[in-house]
Design a protein around this nucleic acid. Structure first.
Lengths: 332, 332
DNA sequence: CAGTAAATTGGCAGCGCTGCCAAAAAAACC
DNA sequence: GGTTTTTTTGGCAGCGCTGCCAATTTACTG
């Protein structure tokens, strides 16, 4: 079985066919340097005729610096990351950059391996989630000389560029909101915080403000595994069976919160009178539930867009806090 | 501002440092060909000491055929595609392949442009959604000589490999199920079918079976734009205001169906007594709603996995129908 | 129309690695 | 010890393109 025989038309063949030199073809194709309209037509005709497709591998090797941008993301199940990719990919495509990605599954060790594999492609930039990386990863990235963008967090020291928002502040504002609303018996339902460190930061900010407000966290339930609607449902059920007199519950994100919301719907627990629910992310689906979800909307797409923008413009190192928006909703 | 100065340690420098020839280093690093244990240690030590990261760009150019796999997908908002990528990326990573992607926004013309851009990277394979491509795209892909995988559909003629399931059959089975349940005044709420041709195929299969069952579609509402919970809600509202006596509604997918479900919850329309709701995709969230959503579960992750598997094993051209599973749920 | 400046063009040396081949070293055999 | 095999090695020519530089052509000046 012989499949992968690339029908290789090379630049040299195009040059030959057009009766011009190789560098002329190269110039025309990249629209760079000068050439007459007549030669351009001749070259383009030959390109068309032969069905020439430039070889970016060769081009990248010959020039300096590639137009690849490497994303090393924790997950594709958590909608956050597809959203970021979506924002970034539009900008990258416009600028003729190419996105490559791999998924760490929230494992820092795997992040290190994948980052190494990515660097082998000599990307223009490596885009990561958050600040928590192994020493090996940091050392490697630093040594690579390529741009580094840490996304979705600004609570820490950036290696180069950081674009995101403060998860800790989001946790604090969520707590402040619940306190303002008069809730005092507040619980928390979350997913594995050791892996999702940003969720951990929100939780810690949340507890901090609760403590300062003299209504310390009444109880919490942490589920192993990734966040999901199912886990949110299960988590709230467990939490309430242990501590039935809670008047509000903060969830690690909207998926979890929706699970809690559905649990209440199914059990006839009235929201927010009997129990308030507060999420994080501001997913569209939370706008469409019978009672809009109280949550914090994060600029996920915008994070991807700006991250990409800063890379393609080769902006200086900086930390950009895009902020977030508290959505009052009707569940808290 | 000078950033992108790749700290370039080359293979030649490693060879120098280790006191061996370049090809020896290359052999050791790829664990290919023969070399003594002693030289291997010397080489690895030098690699470690210099922090050498192989340059895959150069490696790919020198050898034949890359380990890049190009995904040209319609969207990242529709969870279907992140799911497919998720399945594929795990397999690709295991096999040291690298995924690159770009997003067409359901625009065939843009698909053509992006496919061309992808081919410039000389990928081992191009992974697309479905069978509907422009002539230009098809011609280009054929000429490229790289593997072509069409995913998420098997209703048509494959260019090379196809992995998915029959959308038309899914539509038919959905209709048959509703008929079996005794529904006769059936409506449809969908999103832009000209763009999402797979949703169009489902709709067409659905109508076909309804017609044969002597209960032709009573009414339908097509919303411009992408599928979303919000649009599902809006669509059902419009449909019911026009045709209030429907007893069941088929939605273009689960997002839309959830919108319909929420609409009913909000309006106090009892499900399924007053109105049945049927979706498509089998999203997890549909398992967690107070009434589990009646839908069809599609093997999205498995599609990505198998597609990747067939590429890395360089399997012969084939069409694999992974099937789907009807979930009775409680909304129909 | 010579003389100079400006616009085009081609040649060719790499970019960093792999693959092929021949040379050198080590192991096996008589 | 001399041969024949087998295992290890290094040299070097590309992979297809870009970037530099010099050569050629064309445009412009006085």
């Amino acid at each position: 079985m012989e499949f992968n025989h690339q029908a290789t038309v090379t630049l040299a063949e195009v040059a030959e066919a057009a009766g011009v030199g190789e560098s002329t073809v190269s110039r025309v194709l990249r629209n760079h340097g000068s050439f007459s309209g007549k030669t351009r037509d001749r070259v383009m005709a030959a390109v068309e005729r032969l069905g020439y497709v430039p070889n970016r591998i060769a081009g990248t090797l010959a020039s300096t610096g590639s137009r690849l941008v490497a994303f090393v993301i924790p997950s594709l199940s958590n909608i956050v990351f597809p959203d970021v990719l979506r924002g970034a990919s539009a900008i990258l495509e416009e600028n003729r950059y190419q996105a490559v990605f791999s998924v760490t599954d929230y494992d820092p060790k795997k992040e290190e391996e994948l980052a190494a594999a990515m660097l082998a492609w000599r990307p223009a930039a490596v885009m990561l989630a958050g600040y928590e990386h192994t020493d090996g990863t940091i050392k490697m990235l630093r040594a690579s000389g390529c741009r580094i963008v840490e996304m979705l967090d600004v609570d820490g020291d950036a290696l180069d560029i950081a674009v995101g928002f403060s998860n800790r502040a989001a946790g604090r504002e969520s707590a402040a909101f619940l306190l303002r609303r008069g809730y005092r018996r507040i619980g928390y339902v979350g997913h594995d915080l050791n892996r999702d460190t940003r969720a951990g930061k929100r939780f810690s900010g949340f507890c901090e403000t609760l403590g300062a407000g003299a209504a310390p966290l009444a109880d919490h339930e942490i589920l192993a595994g990734a966040s999901s609607v199912e886990n949110g449902k299960l988590g709230l059920e467990r939490l309430l069976s242990r501590t039935p007199d809670l008047d509000a519950v903060y969830f690690s994100n909207d998926d979890m919160a929706l699970g809690g919301y559905f649990h209440c719907l199914a059990r006839g627990i009235s929201i927010p009178a009997q129990l308030a629910i507060f999420g994080y992310n501001g997913l569209d689906i939370g706008r469409a539930t019978p009672q809009p979800l109280s949550t914090i909307r994060t600029p996920r797409v915008a994070t991807g867009q700006l991250a990409a923008q800063l890379v393609v413009t080769n902006a200086p190192p900086q930390v950009v806090d895009l902020g977030f928006e508290l959505i009052e909703g009707a569940t808290a």
